[in-house]
Structures are given as structure tokens and as C-alpha cells.
């Protein structure tokens, strides 16, 4: 597991039915591309988060495959239309198989 990985998300606490809300996410991660060389001249092995998935009440709303050109500490924001109260569940998958998760609730009404 890469060191110092901490996911953060920002979802509005409340919204009206049918609102389009902005959801912001940021995860601290080195995102080592596998292309850089260390002081010893050898390649530093690749270690990135390769997938991000977001579900709302169990249904997928956003998925992204990430590749080595994604920056360190990736910030991702997207918009979603909310029709009911519920919970956004965020999941990031690391190259080494580690999974980082975070959830956030929103009240609609």
C-alpha cells in the first residue's frame, strides 16, 4: 500500500430534488508513473491509482480509468443529478490492489 494515501470528498449536504450538484474529490497519492529514474539510475516501479468508481445508493454514477500521466494528488470533480436522498460511495483502486474508500451522504428534499 502506497504511503500517506488519504481520500477526501466534498458533497453538498442538502439539495433540492432534481438538482445538479458538483462533487469534488482529492486523494493524496504519489502517482509514480514508472517512467522516472531514481538516484541509482534504475526505474522507480510504477505505483498509481488506476481506477476510480463512484456509486450512489449502489448504482454507478461515475467511473474513470487512470493512467500514468495523471498527476500526483489527483483532483477529480464531476456533476450529478440527485433525485433522492442517499449516499455517495467513492472507491479508488491502487496498482497494488489496495482499495481506498470514502462515503458521503446527501439529503434531498
Amino acid at each position: 500500500m502506497a504511503k500517506g494515501v488519504k481520500p477526501r470528498v466534498r458533497v453538498p449536504k442538502k439539495a433540492a430534488k432534481g438538482d445538479v450538484v458538483e462533487i469534488k474529490t482529492l486523494i493524496s497519492h504519489n502517482m509514480e508513473s514508472g517512467r522516472r529514474k531514481g538516484k541509482d539510475g534504475k526505474l522507480i516501479p510504477r505505483s498509481i491509482i488506476n481506477k476510480m468508481e463512484v456509486t450512489f445508493n449502489g448504482k454507478p454514477v461515475f467511473t474513470a480509468d487512470w493512467h500514468p500521466a495523471i498527476s500526483a494528488n489527483p483532483y477529480m470533480s464531476f456533476f450529478a443529478k440527485v433525485e433522492e436522498s442517499g449516499e455517495f460511495a467513492f472507491k479508488w483502486t491502487d496498482d497494488d490492489g489496495s482499495i481506498y474508500e470514502k462515503t458521503s451522504k446527501i439529503t434531498v428534499g
Partner: peptide
């Protein structure tokens, strides 16, 4: 915009640490 939004600003990770 990245700097002034304290959520989006990646430097805030260091502030938290």
C-alpha cells in the same frame, strides 16, 4: 482557481499533515 479553493488546493494536504 485551484489555489483559492481550499478543497482543490493540493497544498492543503500538507497543511493537514
Amino acid at each position: 482557481a485551484m489555489q483559492v479553493d481550499s478543497f482543490q488546493n493540493p497544498g492543503m494536504i500538507w497543511v493537514e499533515q
